[in-house]
């Protein structure tokens, strides 16, 4: 699917740009996109190293395991294939917690760490996503959020009288979306279950 979307965006954009005579602008935007991507990932290195360093301390101190134990009943149901004391579980929980607290980019290193741990549990094809990975991804994509910090900052910058006005609706909507996503994920897992045997 990602192949199709990518090809559609790229080829569709270029063909349309040529038809409309926007060739020069499209060329420019393609090159600047590549440049932005590189500077973005360079910028990411520092934050990534900082958070992964913290994660390592937390892991060695047993904090992640402690945290994971608290939400074990829920995560055990969500990720039946992951042993509950495996580091993958801790990293998954940390990612979701970071997302919930609106830490934004700070959640990315946790998420990548969690994916790496889930990959170490992947007994099958290493290029194919396991059901646990799909569930984790769905949870991240649903974006359950308690403190939409960025939005609040953005709203007050735009001169809002009540910048926090959407906190209530955000919690409500993201909670409902998360529940829906978990249900859809479960259905998909059943439907595609034959592939996993």
């Amino acid at each position: 699917m990602i192949n199709g979307v990518w090809l559609f965006l790229l080829a569709g954009g270029i063909v349309w740009g040529l038809i409309m005579g926007n060739g020069a602008i499209v060329t420019q935007s393609a090159l600047s996109g590549a440049e932005t991507a590189v500077s973005l990932s360079i910028k990411l290195i520092g934050v990534m190293c900082l958070w992964l360093g913290m994660m390592k301390i937390a892991e060695k101190a047993g904090i992640l395991r402690m945290f994971a134990r608290v939400v074990r009943p829920l995560t055990r149901w969500l990720f039946p294939s992951v042993p509950s004391d495996h580091p993958a579980m801790g990293a998954v929980v940390m990612t979701i917690t970071a997302n919930m607290l609106g830490m934004g980019n700070a959640a990315t290193p946790f998420g990548m760490k969690a994916m790496e741990e889930l990959q170490s549990l992947n007994r099958g094809d290493k290029e194919r996503a396991t059901p646990a990975m799909c569930t984790f991804l769905a949870l991240c994509a649903a974006g359950f959020n308690l403190v939409p910090a960025t939005i609040i900052a953005l709203r007050s910058a735009a001169g809002s009288a009540v910048p926090g006005a959407t906190i209530g609706t955000t919690i409500l909507v993201s909670l409902m979306a998360t529940v829906c996503v978990i249900v859809i994920d479960r259905i998909c897992r059943r439907v595609f279950a034959s592939e996993d045997r």
Binding site: M1, I2, V5, T108, G111, M112, M115, E116, L118, Q119, D125, K126, E127, R128, A129, M133, C134, L137, A138, C140, A141, A142, G143, A177, T178, C180, V181, I184, D185, C188, V191, F192, E195
Partner: peptide, 22 residues
């Protein structure tokens, strides 16, 4: 792309579909 890309997953299967539904 970021999470799956970092660990070399090429076939994302139903994950993007579920995410887009969300």
């Amino acid at each position: 792309s970021v999470y799956f890309g970092a660990i070399g997953i090429m076939r994302a299967r139903y994950a993007p579909f579920v995410g887009v539904c969300g």
